[in-house]
């Protein structure tokens, strides 16, 4: 799956959330998008799977503009795991995961769909939840079920919006490990929005750090997680140490923001370097 994002601009009425975002991902990779709240991470993800239509620019999946594809066609290629899901009338776990087969199947559910779903439940080790009602599950279990639903779409690109936000540390590691394995064994391209710097640093192949609707920096965790970047993007004084082979961010203090945008005065890496690292041929 090749994903190319060209100069995407998206505004909610007068508020510009994405400002000329460019991204080029050519191979299966574990990509994490980071950045403070409201920086446009989720909006970018929604532009990729056609939930939102950017005002300018295009998103290309294997050279086809997603806006020219039908919703079902996109759903067959791009799986999506939302942040959280509440259902007023909850279904069982099996039925919830079977929804992931919706873009592939017709009116009825066939044996093959059920095979795929049970296979995924086994893989995620949540078979015992199969007949439970979705709303009776713990936050972590719900998250796993939603991941299972995303996988049931049998996508080539899997988008996840903070999938580990509700999980305890063990489940966080499990999910990240699983996503990493999916990238390698099934050649999936995984794009995940995350808030956890250190978990991301451990597992991501490519980290994209966003600020003010733009890609501020991108590269390997080692390249992106620098004290300067964290100060500029998050307004946080931090120390970056190396744990094993990966960087580990120790937050020290929140910097005082005098007025809107003042943090940006503390200059980190410029966007140009980020773009250079995002070139498809650039070794990561």
């Amino acid at each position: 799956m090749k994903l190319k994002i060209n100069d995407v601009v998206f505004s909610y009425s007068s508020l510009k959330v994405l400002d000329s975002v460019c991204l080029d991902l050519n191979e299966s990779k574990f990509v994490c998008i980071l950045g403070p709240n409201g920086v446009g991470k989720s909006t970018l993800v929604h532009c990729i799977n056609r939930i939102l239509k950017p005002q300018e620019g295009v998103v290309l999946l294997d050279q086809t503009n997603v806006q020219d594809m039908g919703l079902k066609e996109v759903a067959r290629k791009v799986g999506y795991v939302p942040q959280a899901s509440t259902d007023m009338f909850p279904l069982t776990v099996v039925d919830t995961v079977l929804m992931g087969r919706h873009p592939h199947s017709g009116w009825s559910t066939n044996e093959a769909d059920l095979d795929i779903v049970t296979g995924i439940l086994s893989m995620l080790e949540i078979e015992d939840l199969a007949m439970r009602s979705f709303d009776e599950l713990s936050a972590g279990q719900k998250q796993k079920v939603l991941i299972a639903r995303g996988l049931a779409q049998e996508p080539q690109l899997l988008l996840l919006d903070e999938p580990t936000s509700n999980l305890d540390i063990r489940h966080q590691l499990e999910v990240m490990e699983l996503l990493g394995e999916l990238v390698r064994s099934r050649k999936l391209l995984v794009v995940m929005v995350s808030h956890d710097l250190n978990i991301t640093a451990r597992y991501a192949d490519l980290v994209i750090m966003m600020k003010g609707g733009k890609i501020f920096d991108a590269g390997t965790p080692e390249q992106v997680f620098t004290e300067n970047n964290i100060r500029s993007v998050y307004g946080v004084e931090a120390q970056v140490v190396t744990a094993g082979t990966k960087p580990y961010v120790v937050p020290l203090a929140a910097l005082k923001i005098k007025k809107e945008g003042a943090v940006s005065d503390i200059v980190g890496i410029e966007g140009s370097l980020a773009m250079e690292r995002l070139e498809p041929d650039h070794a990561l």
Partner: peptide
């Protein structure tokens, strides 16, 4: 291991899966 579980992804015919399908059918 998790990798072995992933490789079973589409062709897994374990006991659990059969029981899930059985439960689902009776449901």
């Amino acid at each position: 291991t998790r990798s072995s579980r992933i490789s079973m992804f589409s062709a897994f015919k374990g006991r659990n899966e059969v029981s899930i399908k059985g439960q689902y059918r009776s449901y």
